[in-house]
């Protein structure tokens, strides 16, 4: 497959996971690799800057349950967060795969 033909799909999702979590994701349709992701909402993460690190480190990760879970766990391992759980965050991201509501 020619990667230049790997179309980038962009979708958004708003879910209440304890707190509201809004995700905007762009991923490559064929390879299912995350191109970019933005996670916003009224949750709490300490230290706060970890969320930007998470967004950066998720780029290039495959939309696959274990890959996502392992990466999120690794980045958040020294953080405390309220308003979502890692498993539910992974489920939301995976649920966006195949979403054709391109924006």
């Amino acid at each position: 497959m020619n990667s230049s033909q790997d179309e980038i799909i962009t979708t958004t999702s708003t879910t209440k996971l304890g707190k509201i979590v809004k995700i905007k994701i762009a991923y490559k349709q064929e390879s299912e690799l995350i191109h970019s992701i933005k996670i916003t909402g009224d949750f709490f993460v300490h230290p706060e800057e970890v969320i930007e690190q998470l967004e950066q480190e998720l780029c290039g990760v495959k939309l696959e349950k274990e890959d996502l879970k392992n990466k999120i766990k690794l980045v958040l391992k020294n953080s405390e967060f309220f308003g979502f759980e890692i498993d539910s965050l992974v489920d939301v991201i995976l649920g966006m795969k195949g979403d054709k509501n391109k924006i």
């Binding site: 933005k38 916003t40 009224d42 706060e48």
Partner: peptide
């Protein structure tokens, strides 16, 4: 207090 009304948004909010 606030000298005029203000909306503050959270660090993570859009």
């Amino acid at each position: 207090g606030w000298s005029k009304p203000c909306i503050s948004i959270g660090y993570f909010q859009n």
